[in-house]
Design a protein around this nucleic acid. Sequence first.
DNA 1: GCGACAG
DNA 2: ATCTTGTCGC
Length: 235
Amino acid sequence: MAPPSHPWNLSPSEAIALQKELAARVICRGTPENVKTVAGVDVSFGGEMARAAAVVLGFPDLEVTDHAVVTRPVTFPYIPGLFTFREGPVAVAAIEQLAKRPDLIIFDGQGLAHPRRLGIASHMGLLLDLPTIGCAKTRLCGTFDPPGPEKGSWSPLIHRGEVIGAAVRTRTNVRPVFVSPGHLLDLPSAIRFVLACCRKYRLPETTRQADHVAGGGGIRDPSAGPRTPSGRPRP
DNA sequence: GCGACAG
DNA sequence: ATCTTGTCGC
């Protein structure tokens, strides 16, 4: 079936109805074969503008090979459960600017681990018809037992009796991240790819590189010059 | 009704 | 997300 296409200028209630329809088309099974490139996507805000960055890394070497940045006006408020309608439009634009479509994309947010099973990773996977993974810094819904303290250990994230994702320890003795399949792969695969993208930090390199390019810490005026911790010029 | 609530 | 300095710990 053809990848779905739809307008973004919806009201919150219309957006919720759309999520329920699209969720039925998400496929959380299988494992992507021959993955040679993995992309990371992240969006930062400044005033009324949203800036998305898509960065492509080689897999499994994780060397950056391409990136694209797109800035647009914000058109939707932040509402837990609906933030795809805030970050999705500009995120898609950035991904479409890449020279080549990546083999897999990791988003900074949930995938299946969403109240209606359609976090940004699942939604984007459907629209782009690409394998996607949701890797969030915090939980949106579901309950879980703390995973073991060592890097690599994880515990299932459960919601309404279903396993929707996992709390994964990407670094020893560091808060876990929340991984869930977005589209076209299962949970075990999602966990393996996220761990394979982690080096010496809690977040996968894909997300870190995208955050870096998007302007982690907010969109600021370049002509404002560098700022020091004290806000005072460096001696 | 009350608390929770991706970024 | 963004605003924002110093600080406790491995």
